[in-house]
């Protein structure tokens, strides 16, 4: 019996609707009827992809024109191996290609274990509301960049991201040889309500510092989480206390830093206008 031929079309559609996109794509190989019913599938609003799919040229070609309804994109983690850097770069550029084809993407989630090329940040779709992303900055990135090695690691966002409300960004610096590294996220959109920035290092004893965003850039910020060896204000003179005091709408602050740098715990205790304050040593 041929289910797809005998069953009413609406029942067949109900069956295929329950299947993930890769099963439906495989269904095209079954016979003509299954091919007819599955070849034009459009990807649904929530899409979960394995990195291997993202870097597959055949998949990218197939996905072209099928991503217009995708609203949530989640990447699954994959294990590191000797070709990690090559894979990351390839993954980042392929992901960029995918992202450029989405029209209504609202949520992007890349697991912390899966790092991306920092350049991807400036090419995120403007429709995004929530971004959870992890980027790795390594020697090979530095060689490609125009910035002075080891002084400033800027992460620029698109200047116009009117809907972005939640940003969770984890920056990992790998094998960077210089000291005094400063991560500086710039062009954060004013719509942000929740901001979580963390910086880590692998292969170095001293982790990077984090340059705080300009308070005037974040008029709607309610929840702030920062993690770094220490924090540096944009004018290099303003204190963390002054930075937090200037953001009157904050409802929660969580800081993790090197206990030897500055006693942020005591500083937070004195913040009267923020209901939830917490400090933890790194």
């Amino acid at each position: 019996m041929n289910f797809a031929d005998i069953l009413p079309e609406d029942v067949t559609a109900m069956i295929f609707d329950r299947l993930p996109f890769d099963d439906r794509a495989r269904g095209c190989f079954v016979n003509r009827t299954w091919n007819r019913l599955n070849r034009d599938q459009i990807l649904g609003p929530a899409l979960e992809l394995h990195p291997k799919q993202v870097v597959n040229r055949s998949f990218l070609d197939w996905a072209r024109g099928r991503l217009r309804n995708v609203q949530e994109l989640e990447l699954l983690p994959f294990k590191s191996n000797s070709t990690d850097i090559v894979t990351q770069r390839c993954f980042s550029s392929s992901l960029c290609e995918l992202l450029q084809q989405t029209q209504h993407l609202q949520r992007l989630r890349v697991p912390p274990a899966q790092s991306l090329d920092a350049a991807l940040l400036s090419r995120l779709p403007q429709s995004l509301c929530e971004v959870s992303i992890s980027i790795t900055f390594d020697d090979s990135c530095l060689l490609d960049s125009d910035f002075d090695v080891g002084t400033l690691v800027p992460f620029s966002f698109p200047r116009y991201m009117p809907h972005l409300q939640t940003l969770e960004l984890q920056v990992t610096c790998v094998n960077v040889r210089s000291y005094g590294l400063v991560c500086a996220p710039s062009c954060l959109p004013p719509s942000l309500r929740t901001l979580s920035l963390s910086t880590k290092s692998r292969g170095r004893r001293v982790g990077p510092s984090l340059m705080l965003p300009c308070p005037s850039q974040l008029p709607n910020l309610r929840d702030l989480r920062l993690e770094a060896t220490c924090f540096i204000c944009q004018d290099r003179g303003t204190s963390m206390s002054a930075f937090l005091t200037s953001m009157q709408h904050l409802r929660g602050v969580r800081l993790r830093s090197n206990a030897k740098a500055v006693n942020y715990g005591k500083m937070l205790e004195e913040l009267s206008h923020v209901p939830i304050c917490k400090w933890e040593p790194l």
């Binding site: 019996m1 289910f3 095209c28 190989f29 016979n31 003509r32 091919n35 799919q53 597959n56």
Partner: peptide, 24 residues
């Protein structure tokens, strides 16, 4: 499901080209 593959060769080749990633 007791189905029969009823593609002609060029048709199957075209499907293979488009959906190759799904067979990886």
């Amino acid at each position: 499901f007791g189905l029969v593959k009823n593609f002609e060769a060029p048709e199957e080749e075209n499907i293979r080209r488009t959906n190759l990633w799904a067979l990886v």
